[in-house]
Lab assay of single mutants.
Amino acid sequence: QWIQSKREDIVNQMTEACLNQSLDALLSRDLIMKEDYELVSTKPTRTSKVRQLLDTTDIQGEEFAKVIVQKLKDNKQMGLQ
């Protein structure tokens, strides 16, 4: 999976804004449970939030991952090649 192969780059480069947009999009599509949303959003640092989101992606699967990839594209953060 692309996200896993780029995990380190995503953790380093995903902005707080992109992270929040991803969470909002996942929530609005019922792809993330409120508990998982809280787990991510209550982490103390941006990098720990991104790591938690990516860990959740492993469990949730492809549809979940597609939303995150789309948000990275929207925010022009796909220089993660």
Rank of each mutant, 00 (worst) to 15 (best):
Q1L: 07
W2K: 07
W2S: 06
W2A: 05
I3V: 06
I3G: 01
I3Q: 08
Q4T: 15
Q4L: 11
Q4S: 15
S5H: 01
S5Q: 12
S5G: 11
S5F: 03
S5L: 10
S5V: 07
R7V: 04
R7C: 00
R7M: 00
R7A: 08
R7F: 13
E8N: 02
D9W: 12
D9E: 08
I10Q: 05
I10A: 00
I10C: 02
I10H: 01
V11F: 02
V11Q: 02
V11I: 15
N12S: 10
N12I: 06
N12W: 01
Q13H: 06
Q13K: 03
T15N: 05
E16S: 09
E16K: 05
A17V: 14
A17P: 08
A17M: 10
A17G: 11
A17E: 15
C18M: 09
C18W: 05
C18I: 07
L19N: 06
L19D: 03
L19W: 00
L19Y: 04
L19G: 05
L19S: 01
L19M: 09
N20Y: 15
N20I: 13
Q21A: 15
Q21T: 08
Q21S: 12
Q21G: 07
S22Y: 00
S22A: 14
S22K: 00
L23G: 03
L23H: 11
L23I: 00
L23N: 09
L23M: 09
L23W: 00
L23Q: 07
L23E: 06
D24C: 08
D24Y: 10
A25G: 06
L26N: 03
L26D: 01
L26G: 04
L26S: 07
L27S: 12
L27I: 08
L27Y: 13
L27W: 10
S28G: 08
S28L: 10
S28I: 06
S28D: 08
R29K: 14
R29L: 14
R29S: 09
R29D: 09
D30T: 04
D30C: 08
D30A: 12
D30L: 04
L31W: 00
L31N: 02
I32S: 04
I32H: 05
I32A: 02
I32Q: 09
M33W: 03
M33F: 04
M33H: 15
K34W: 10
E35H: 14
E35V: 07
E35D: 12
E35A: 10
D36P: 06
D36Q: 15
D36M: 02
D36F: 01
D36N: 03
D36K: 05
Y37A: 12
Y37P: 04
Y37Q: 05
Y37L: 11
E38F: 10
E38K: 10
L39Y: 07
L39H: 12
L39M: 10
V40C: 09
V40M: 01
V40S: 04
V40N: 06
S41C: 13
S41M: 15
T42M: 14
T42L: 10
T42Q: 15
T42A: 13
T42W: 01
K43I: 05
K43D: 00
K43L: 14
K43W: 00
K43M: 07
K43H: 12
P44A: 11
P44M: 06
P44Y: 11
P44D: 07
T45S: 13
T45Q: 03
R46V: 13
R46L: 15
R46I: 14
R46T: 14
R46H: 13
R46D: 10
T47V: 11
S48C: 09
S48Q: 15
K49F: 01
K49V: 02
K49Y: 03
K49S: 04
K49H: 03
K49P: 03
V50W: 00
V50R: 01
V50E: 05
V50P: 05
R51V: 09
R51L: 10
R51I: 10
R51Y: 02
R51P: 05
R51T: 10
R51M: 08
Q52N: 00
Q52W: 13
Q52R: 04
L53S: 03
L53A: 07
L53V: 04
L54C: 06
L54P: 05
L54H: 05
D55C: 12
D55M: 13
D55A: 14
D55S: 11
D55L: 12
T56C: 12
T56K: 04
T56R: 05
T57G: 14
T57W: 02
T57I: 14
T57C: 15
D58C: 14
D58Q: 14
D58R: 11
D58M: 13
D58W: 12
I59S: 09
Q60L: 08
Q60Y: 14
G61V: 10
G61E: 12
G61D: 13
G61H: 13
E62K: 01
E62M: 05
E62Y: 00
E62P: 06
E63R: 07
E63V: 04
E63H: 02
E63Y: 01
E63L: 03
F64W: 07
F64A: 15
F64N: 03
F64I: 09
A65C: 03
A65P: 05
K66A: 11
K66T: 11
K66H: 06
K66S: 13
V67D: 06
V67W: 00
V67C: 08
V67A: 03
I68A: 08
I68R: 02
I68T: 08
V69C: 11
V69M: 14
V69W: 07
V69L: 09
V69I: 13
Q70A: 13
Q70R: 06
Q70P: 04
K71D: 07
K71E: 10
K71M: 12
K71A: 14
K71N: 11
K71H: 15
K71V: 15
K71F: 10
K71S: 14
L72S: 04
L72V: 07
L72F: 13
L72A: 01
K73N: 11
K73R: 14
K73I: 10
D74Y: 11
D74P: 05
D74F: 06
D74M: 07
D74A: 13
N75E: 14
N75G: 10
N75A: 09
N75M: 11
K76N: 10
K76M: 15
K76T: 12
K76H: 13
L80M: 08
